[in-house]
Each structure stands twice: as structure tokens, then as C-alpha cells.
Simulated assay, not measured.
Amino acid sequence: MTDAPAVPSTALPARGWYKRNEIAVTPWLFLAPAILFFAFYVIWPIYQSIAISFYDWDGLGEARYVGMANYVELMDDSAFEVSLWNNLKWLLLYLLAIPGGLFIALFLNQTVTGIRIYKSLFFFPFVLSQVVVGLVFSWFYLPNEGLLNGVLGLVGLGPVNVLGDPTMATYGIIAAGLWPQTAYCMILYLTGLNAVDPEQIEAGRLDGAKGWRMLWYIIIPQLRPATFIAFVVTIIGALRSFDLISIMTNGGPFGQTRVLSFYMFEKALSEYGFRMGYGAAIAVVLFLIMLVFIAYFLWSMWSEEKGR
């Protein structure tokens, strides 16, 4: 009796865990380096700042746990109150960069003779360092030699010491910050205008829309992604306005131009403080204010995308 011929096996070879989950796992492998960097350089410092805010520490010696004492002290700190109010002024006035950037972008999006020269002039502030901007405007505001007072003198107005006046200095610094910030918003809107659907514009023209109606009902709705980024970047820029203040007034006169980021530096790292715990408490307050605005814009964008 002869043996029956062997039947070849049709079973598939065993697959490893990665092969079975390759589609789900591969994106996370590409994201892993960015997630690690984000955790190490963003999440971990945030956790450390929150932890340090509960201690009385000079940055070198032994830290002493004080609980919520640093936050309670903030409530009676007049310099913190001034810094908080100045941050609110920065937030409100800095938002002028968004409509300013939009209207400049609309102008530069036209076919006009010499438009490349105009684009270069409006783009120029964006490539300047904030330190350079601060120095330029410090010279611009000089009481006697500054260009501002030279122009005022031509129309018969007296000299104005913008950075030396406690009531005007903050607004002078905000004006300096608006110069490059408007240029940044302009670039965002120029990019967004390139993605505007020409068919919708043509349909609007056929329906009789023009001028402000065309802008409000057809163009601006298509610029929502650029507007979202402009809002987030402008709010973050207003809340972390440190470099211009440091260069132009160093918090003066009489501490009236301080903002939270600058006051945090004064308390934690300058010769006036070395109170790391108190500085960390100020940083946590600033972080929470930023978080509220960013969370609101993210929620608005998510709701809009979900409703489509």
C-alpha cells in the first residue's frame, strides 16, 4: 500500500504584532520624536513651573514649601496689578494688527504699478528683530532729537516725551510692537488670499456683490483659517511682550510699563528678586490666561469643523 501524496499547506504564515498593526502604529512612530521633544521642552517645564510656584526658593539654596502663599501675595501686590492691567491693554490694542494686516494684504493683492516695492516695504518689519524694533522706536521717540517730535514741531506742537510719561509709555511701546505684528498678519492674509475661490468671487459679482459686501460675505469667510492663526499668534505675542519693554523702558518709568512676563523676570532672575517661587507663580497666572484664549479659539475651530 503506497502512501498518499502530501497535500501542500495553504495556511498563511504567522504575522508579527507590528505587521498586524502597521497602519495604526506607523504614524505614531513618525510623531514620536516630536512628541518626545514637546514633552521634554514644553510639558515638563510647565509642570516644573507649577511645582516651583508652591515653594519659597532663591534658585540656589534649599526650597521651602509655602503652599499657596505666593498666589495669596499676588493678590495684594500693586506691581502685579499694574502688570496685569498693562497686559490687558496689550491684548486689546494688539488685536488692531489683524484688521491692519488684512487691509494691507488686500491692497498688496491688487495689480498695481510698483507692487513689488510696496510688498518689500510692508514685509520689511517682519524680518527685523524685536530688539532692533525697540531701538528704532526708542530713537523715534527721543524728546529732542526724535523724528516724532521733529514732525510735531513742523505743525507747531510742543515736544512729547512718550517713553518718559507714565501715562503714555505703554501705548508707545504697543505702537512699536504693532509695526512688525501687522506685517506678520499681512503675510498670513496674503497666503490666505491665494487660496480664495475665484468662482465664488465671480458668483458674488453676478449677484451684485461688490466693495464691502464682497469683502464681508465672500472673502472674509474664506480667510477664517488665516484669521484663526493671526488671532492666536497675536494674543501670544501680546502676552509675552518682554523684549520691547526691556529695550525701550526696562519697566519704567516708575514701573508703569511692566507686563506679567517682565515682572516675572524681575522677581525671579534680576537683582531685585531671585524669588523663583514667586516668579513661577506669576508665570502660572500668565500661562492660564494664555490657555483660556487658545482653548477658546481651538474649541471654536473644532466646532466649526464639526458643523460642516
Rank of each mutant, 00 (worst) to 15 (best):
D77S: 07
L178D: 01
F80A: 04
Q200L: 15
M168K: 14
L88I: 06
L135Y: 10
G134W: 01
N87E: 10
P8H: 10
I173S: 02
L188Q: 00
P221G: 06
T227V: 03
G277M: 04
G252Q: 09
Y18G: 03
R64W: 10
A169P: 02
P13R: 00
A280C: 11
R20P: 09
L286F: 06
R20L: 14
E199T: 14
M248D: 07
G100D: 01
F80G: 03
G307A: 13
A176Q: 04
L157N: 02
A79W: 02
I98S: 05
F242L: 11
S49T: 14
W17D: 05
L84D: 09
G211E: 06
G251W: 00
S241V: 06
A295Q: 08
I52K: 08
N250Y: 13
K306E: 15
G211K: 06
W139E: 12
G156I: 11
G16C: 08
F40Q: 05
V196Q: 03
S270R: 12
I117F: 09
W302T: 08
F254W: 06
L88K: 03
K119C: 03
N109R: 04
R258K: 13
T10D: 13
T10N: 14
L91N: 06
K19I: 08
F107I: 11
L12W: 05
A176G: 10
Y184R: 04
R275F: 15
W302I: 05
R213C: 12
L95S: 06
L60T: 13
T191R: 00
A39C: 11
G59H: 07
F40T: 07
A183P: 00
G208Q: 10
I43H: 03
Y18H: 02
I187R: 04
L74E: 00
